[in-house]
């Protein structure tokens, strides 16, 4: 996947990925983390984007945007090297708008960490951010909807993701046009 180059703000090696979720909240990170195995530098790198410390998307080259599967891959990196990059909030939100899938903000904490404190922190931060989100420039909303090429691309990407996930989740037989 393509991401704009962010500004590196932290580079560390951790024993478990879940500690990075707490770090992202502490830093109120808006940007992304790149997760790799320090002992196997050629292994594929995973990625989690953050908006104010709250997870937005999870990606791994071997699982694409399937958040649960991507998180499982990333969690298997022990120890794990993580590089945290900052991006502007509009840039991150633009990434989330265009991504085929965003993650339930609490899923990484639920899946990777047994600590309900982290889960509650994530929920609180998410709720606060949602209620504080400034209204979007409404002319931009209309422009977005009038950009039929952009909408068609979003729909097409989503269709592909739906098919991929239907197979992964054993739901393919329930698809309308499954043959």
């Amino acid at each position: 996947m393509w991401l704009p180059q962010g500004r590196l703000c932290r580079s560390t090696v951790v024993s478990t990925v879940s500690s990075v979720l707490a770090l992202a909240l502490d830093l109120s990170l808006t940007g992304y983390g790149v997760f790799s195995m320090p002992e196997t530098p050629r292994a594929p790198r995973g990625l989690i984007t953050f908006d104010g410390g709250v997870p937005g998307c999870c990606y791994h080259p071997q699982t694409s945007w399937d958040s649960t599967a991507a998180l499982s891959r990333i969690a298997s990196y022990r120890p794990c090297r993580v590089d945290l990059y900052q991006l502007s909030r509009p840039t991150v939100r633009s990434i989330h708008d265009r991504a085929p899938e965003t993650v339930d903000p609490t899923l990484p904490a639920s899946q990777l960490d047994g600590d309900s404190i982290l889960l509650q922190r994530t929920k609180r931060r998410h709720s606060k951010r949602e209620s504080n989100t400034a209204p979007t420039n409404t002319d931009t909303v209309v422009s977005f909807l009038e950009d039929s090429d952009r909408i068609r691309a979003l729909q097409e990407t989503t269709r592909q993701t739906v098919q991929l996930r239907a197979r992964r989740w054993n739901l393919a037989s329930l698809l309308e046009n499954d043959h």
């Binding site: 979007t136 269709r159 698809l175 309308e176």
Partner: peptide
């Protein structure tokens, strides 16, 4: 909500729904 992120995700929901009939 009448915002781009919400409309984007709502359109994705529709794609999921349509795919499953």
């Amino acid at each position: 909500q009448p915002t781009i992120p919400s409309l984007s995700d709502a359109l994705k929901v529709q794609e999921y729904a349509t795919a499953y009939g």
